[in-house]
Design a protein around this nucleic acid. Structure first.
Lengths: 222, 222
DNA sequence: GCCTGCGTCATACCTAGGTATGATCGCAAA
DNA sequence: TTTGCGATCATACCTAGGTATGACGCAGGC
C-alpha cells in the first residue's frame, strides 16, 4: 500500500524483455522485434551471464531458449524459481518435443514456441507474459507492504493479533495467554495502529493475506 | 462445512477414472491398468457418449485421447469446462505436436502423454490428477456450503453484510442505506445467525470466500 | 380475511471494545 | 547509570455491539 519515496518507476515504466539465447542472430532479431513495439530488452548468451548479473526490479518477462550452454533452459527455470526470480518465462526451441514442452508448462511457463515461430506469436506470448507479471508484481507488492507492517509488531502483539483475527474476544485471549483483559486491549490497539487498519474486518483480511490467524476449529453450527 | 445426511460417499469412496478413446483396445488396456491399482473406471468411445450420460459426483479424473470422432479432445476440454465439469484431464495422443500440448496445458490439463507411454507414467499422471481433484472438490464443497448459507439471507441482510464485512460501524451502515442503527443491528444479528458464525472475523472470511464485501477505498494510513 | 415473513423502529439493558492516565518492572542499548 | 522500550496492570470513561420485548406496515399465499 505505502510506496513512499522511491516512486521512480510508476506503472508507466517500460517493461523489459530478457532474452537468453546462445545464437547471436536470434538475439538481435528478437531484440529488434521487441524494440519495434516499444519494449526494452536485455540480452544474454548463457544462463551464467543471466545469473551473474543483477536483474532490474521492473515489470518484464524472460524469453528463453531451451538448449543453452551449461544448464538447459528447463533447469534454469527451476533455478530462477528457487532464487525467487518470478519473471514469467516463454520458451523457444528448435528441437523440442512434447515431454519437454509439457514439463515447461507444468513448471509455470507462459508459452513454448517452436522455432521458427511467427513474430506475432512471440509478441502475443510476451503480451500475455507481461500481463501475468503485472498481476504477480501487484500481488507481491501488496503482500510485501502488509508484511512490512507485520514486522513492526512485537512478539506479544503478533500473538494477540493471531487470536483476535481468529475471532476470540479480548477476555478469551487474556485467559489463553495469561494476561489481564486490559493488557490485551492495549496490544490490540497497538496492532490496529501498526497494521494501519481502523476496523477488525480489514485486520482480518490482512491476517489472511499473511496466513497468520490462529487456526481454530470452525465455530459453525448451521 | 455442513454435510448432513447424504454422507453416502465418504473420503474412502473409490475414485473414478473416465476413459475416452475411440480405440476399443486402448480402452480395455487402460481399464485393466487402472483396475489393477484399485481404481474404478468408466469407458466412452466418443465425446458424444460422455456428454450424453450423467457423470457421477465422485472424485475422479478424465483420460482423453486428443483425436476423437466428432469434436477433438481439446474442444471437448473446453466444452466440459463450460459445463462446469471440473474433472482434471490427462491427454493422450499418437500424433501430437508441441502447439497441441501447449494449448492443452494452458487450458489446465494435468498432463499430456504421447502414445505409446509407459504404464507408470500414466499412473503417475492419474495420481496427480486425482490429488488435484480432491483439492478442487474440497474447495468447491466449502464454498458451496457458504453460498447455501448466503442464499438464506434476505436482500437487506446481504446489503448489511456487505457493509459490515467492509469494516463499517453499524451507524455508518445505517446512514448509508437510510435506516436506524437499531434496525441494522437486527439485520446484522440475523446475518451472523444465518451464516453460522459467532465472530465478525469468521463472517469476514466467509464474505471473502464469496467475494461479497463492499469494496471500499482502503483505510490505510501507515 | 388471516397468517407469515420481511422490514422497520423504540426502549432498555448488558457486554465488548477502545483509549487515556498513571504506574511498575525488566532488559538492553547508549 | 541512565534512557528507552516492551510488557504489564488498574481506574475511569466513553463508544460500539448484541439482544429481548413490543409494535406497526406491507405484500403474498392459503
Amino acid at each position: 500500500m505505502t510506496r513512499p519515496i522511491d516512486e521512480a518507476h510508476p506503472p508507466s515504466a517500460k517493461s523489459i524483455v530478457i532474452i537468453v539465447d546462445d545464437d547471436a542472430g536470434i538475439r538481435t532479431s528478437l531484440d529488434s522485434l521487441f524494440r519495434s513495439v516499444g519494449l526494452e530488452t536485455r540480452l544474454f548468451g548463457s544462463p551464467a551471464e543471466l545469473l551473474g548479473g543483477q536483474l532490474p526490479d521492473r515489470p518484464g518477462c524472460i524469453v528463453l531458449d531451451v538448449r543453452l550452454p551449461g544448464v538447459s533452459g528447463l533447469d534454469l527455470q527451476g533455478q530462477l524459481a528457487q532464487q525467487g526470480i518470478g519473471y514469467p518465462i516463454i520458451f523457444m526451441t528448435g528441437h523440442g518435443d512434447i515431454p519437454m514442452s509439457v514439463r515447461a508448462m507444468k513448471a509455470g511457463a507462459v508459452d513454448f514456441l517452436s522455432k521458427p515461430f511467427r513474430d506475432q506469436d512471440m509478441l502475443d506470448a510476451v503480451t500475455a507474459a507481461l500481463a501475468r507479471d503485472a498481476q504477480r508484481r501487484a500481488e507481491a507488492t501488496a503482500k510485501e507492504d502488509i508484511r512490512a507492517q507485520y514486522e513492526t509488531l512485537t512478539a506479544r502483539e503478533r500473538e494477540v493479533m493471531g487470536y483476535v483475527t481468529a475471532g476470540l474476544m479480548n477476555k478469551q485471549v487474556a485467559g489463553l495467554i495469561g494476561l489481564s483483559e486490559i493488557t490485551v486491549k492495549i496490544h490490540r490497539g497497538n496492532v490496529m495502529r501498526k497494521m494501519g487498519v481502523r476496523s477488525l474486518a480489514d485486520l482480518v483480511r490482512k491476517a489472511e493475506a499473511l496466513g497468520v490467524s490462529q487456526t481454530r476449529r470452525s465455530t459453525d453450527q448451521t
